[in-house]
Design a protein around this nucleic acid. Structure first.
Lengths: 229, 229
DNA sequence: TAGATTGTTAATCGATTAACAATC
DNA sequence: TAGATTGTTAATCGATTAACAATC
């Protein structure tokens, strides 16, 4: 199995989202050119990304929408479901427990866990929430390999370590904590802070650009006014 | 104002997170070398990132923790607060409304909006939720420039357009929808699907690697067994 | 056939890493 | 002073874009 570049992997769900739309509209084929237009990704890049999933297209026609969907889905392993445990059934945690989108993306959250005894034992959106001390046992017994981390930041590292000891191989980390774990463990951060950082900075840059623009046109206006005199 | 590379912007909050920790422990100075160790980012890269924020260090000593914090925070515009409106007070939306972390990161969610009349009018974590039809008016009057998008996927594009018409300049998009908007509008996606894609694929790659490893050692064992005979 | 498309190979660009001079 | 560190310049690496041959 070839290792697909991260940036390609991150673009594949975008194509997929569009492809579902096309299929829904009854469209049979689609060209890389069109996908490029809609995603803003360069045409050649789209071709390379698609090629990495192993599908081949038809010159002059494009790709069969269904083939492309199947190819991307199987490349991302979204066709057969993987079980996951979620730890930390707070605000964010419980919102994820009921997120039906994940099932379509191969992720099956089979149970939640929380240290708070008032939460443990309850059902959140049909998903059972266990007390935290049952984690290790259940994890080994059910051979669950994906852990979703939605605990408060100060418990993130300890919880992650417990996950790894219990047989978790990949952690989907929603906390801002930088986890220090064994080399082999896969950690994927949903980094809201990183995203917010980009947004904030880009907006400041924009403000400054715009105010410079304003000054320029103001100066220009003054010049024109002076010329009139 | 120089344009800072996206990848640098995404790393800055990581450093910041560690720096808060050091400050809390009463540590006065920190070296780029140490930050590199803890983040897994290359030493030279850390130096370049830090340099871009405009701070200068002291050879042989390192950087003053406080200076570095101030420099990164002001670079990300996290020191003065920006107001934001959140649209779509469902599961995810309401979990974000009460997320106190954001206030420390310069984001002040001043109101929520929802089309559902049963949600509108209520308070979620002390934040008022208005009916959607008040959005345009309030947005212009309060000069809010940041919109947080947490509506269902099929309403994302229409809602985003309404935001832009109402004066929103930057959209923090939590939906999987690819927004098609005016060039100048800043869109920052919190792309859970992209993140899940990377996780899923990396895990499949790992499974295959491990099973190959198993086969290899099994073969090796067989060879040894045969040798014994 | 001509035009549109695929898919590959070469060129460019940007980000990361290596090497090294400067300094408290 | 020697060692540790900063910060810069050069080299490498990987990702993106450009050019082009192949094809239904």
């Amino acid at each position: 199995m070839i290792s697909i570049p991260v940036l390609t992997l991150k673009r594949l769900p975008q194509y997929l989202e569009l492809l579902y739309g096309f299929e829904h509209e009854g469209q049979d084929t689609i060209s890389a050119t069109r996908l490029a237009e809609l995603t803003g990704v360069h045409m050649t890049q789209v071709r390379k990304d698609i090629a990495l999933t192993g599908v081949v297209g038809i010159p002059k026609v494009g790709h069969k929408v269904r083939d492309l969907i199947e190819s991307i889905e199987s490349c991302l392993n979204w066709k057969d479901h993987s079980s996951a445990f979620l730890v930390g059934v707070g605000r964010l945690g419980s919102s994820l427990l009921g997120y039906s989108e994940f099932k379509r993306k191969g992720l099956n959250i089979v149970a939640g866990f929380d240290t708070d005894p008032s939460v443990a034992g309850s059902l959140v959106d049909g998903v059972i929430v266990h007390p935290m001390d049952k984690f290790a046992n259940l994890c080994r017994r059910m051979k669950v390999h994906i852990g979703i981390l939605t605990v408060p930041a100060d418990q993130a590292q300890a919880t992650a370590e417990l996950m790894v000891e219990s047989g978790i191989l990949a952690i989907w980390n929603f906390t801002p904590t930088l986890l220090q774990l064994d080399e082999g463990i896969i950690v994927e951060d949903v980094d809201m802070s990183a995203s917010l950082a980009v947004l904030s900075r880009r907006l400041s840059e924009k403000y400054e650009q715009d105010s410079q623009q304003d000054n320029k046109s103001k100066n220009k206006k003054n010049t024109i006014d002076q010329e009139k005199q």
